[in-house]
Design a protein around this nucleic acid. Structure first.
Lengths: 159, 159
DNA sequence: AGGCATTATTGCAGTATGCAACGATTAGCG
DNA sequence: CGCTAATCGTTGCATACTGCAATAATGCCT
C-alpha cells in the first residue's frame, strides 16, 4: 500500500485534470443509463422527486433548489401531479404557498431509480479490487470536499 | 434465519458506491458550471460540437454518436448552422450525404468551453495534495476502464 | 429496369427552459 | 388602521431538446 513513488510535481495537476476529464464521461454515462432505464420519469423530474423526498416544500424553494425558474418548476409540478407522483396542498398558515408532497408512487419511483443506480454502479465497482475500490472512495470524497469548499452548495441535486 | 447479505458484497464495495454516488454530483456540477458559463451554447449543442471537432461526419453518424434520433440531430444542426458554428456541404461522392464541418467560430466555441472546464477542474484539484491528485487520476482511470469493459462504448460524449 | 436500403428531411407531439406580466395574499410601515 | 411593497403562484410567449412516423432523393444490387 505504501507507494514509494517520488512526489509528483505540478505536472501531476495537468495529468489529474486530463484523467478526471476523460473519465468523468463514464461516470455520467452510468447515471444517465440508470435514469434512462427508469419507467417514464425523466432526469429533471427525477431531480425534483429527489428534492421532495427529502423535505416537502413550496414552489419557489423547490425551484431554487433545482436552480430553475419558478415557471419551469411549476409546469414540472403540473406534470408530476398529473402522473400521480406528488400532491399539492394549500398551507393554512400562509395561503399564498402551496405545499408539495410526494405520493407513495413518487417515493417508490425515487427508490426504484436509486436502486438501479446503486446496482449499476456496484456492477462497475465489482470489477475493481477492494484496494482500488477503497482508493476510489477516498479520492472521490476528497474531490467532493474540495469542490464544496471552492463553490459551497453548488453541487447539483442529482442524487 | 441468519444474517442477510446473500450476495458476495464486501463492505468496501458498499462504501465505494456511497462515495462515488455522493461525489459524482460535484463532478457534474463542475461540468454544468463550465458549460452554463459559455455564451449561448447549450449542453447538447456543446456535445455535438465536440463530436464534430473530432471528425466531420454526416447526419446519421453524428446522431448515432450522440445517441439521439436523426430528427433531433437534424434540427440541432439547423440551429448551429444558423448560429454560424457549423456548415453543411454536399458530399460529391454520395449526394445523399451531407458533410457537417465546424466553422472557425464553432472550433473557437469548443476551445472556450474546454478551457473553462479545465480551469474550473484544475481549481478544484489544486486544493488536493499531489498525492491525492495522483490517486484520483488513477482511481478515475480504473473506473472508466471497468465501466467500458462492462458496457463498451456506452460512454456519453460529453468531454 | 426494378426493388430495396440509405440519407436527409418534415410533421406531429411532449418535455424543459427562461422572461415578463399578472392576481392573490401577506408583511411592513406610517 | 390603511396603504404600499414584497412574496407566491400562475399564465403567456418564445425557444430548445426529444422521439416516432412518413416521405423524397439518392445509391446499390440483382
Amino acid at each position: 500500500m505504501q507507494a514509494k513513488r517520488p512526489v509528483p510535481t505540478s505536472r501531476s495537476l495537468d495529468e489529474a485534470v486530463d484523467a478526471v476529464l476523460a473519465s468523468s464521461r463514464a461516470l455520467v454515462a452510468v447515471s444517465a443509463r440508470s435514469i434512462a432505464g427508469a419507467q417514464g420519469v425523466t432526469l429533471p423530474q427525477y431531480r425534483m422527486l429527489v428534492v421532495l423526498s427529502g423535505t416537502a416544500t413550496n414552489l419557489t424553494v423547490l425551484a431554487a433548489a433545482l436552480d430553475v425558474a419558478p415557471s419551469t418548476a411549476l409546469r414540472m409540478v403540473d406534470r408530476l401531479e398529473s402522473a400521480g407522483l406528488l400532491e399539492r396542498s394549500v398551507n393554512p398558515e400562509n395561503r399564498r404557498e402551496t405545499r408539495l408532497t410526494l405520493t407513495g408512487a413518487g417515493r417508490r419511483a425515487v427508490r426504484t431509480v436509486n436502486a438501479r443506480r446503486r446496482r449499476d454502479l456496484a456492477a462497475v465497482l465489482a470489477r475493481l479490487s477492494p484496494e482500488e475500490q477503497a482508493a476510489l472512495a477516498n479520492a472521490m470524497t476528497a474531490f467532493a470536499r474540495a469542490a464544496d469548499t471552492l463553490w459551497p452548495g453548488e453541487a447539483a441535486t442529482i442524487s
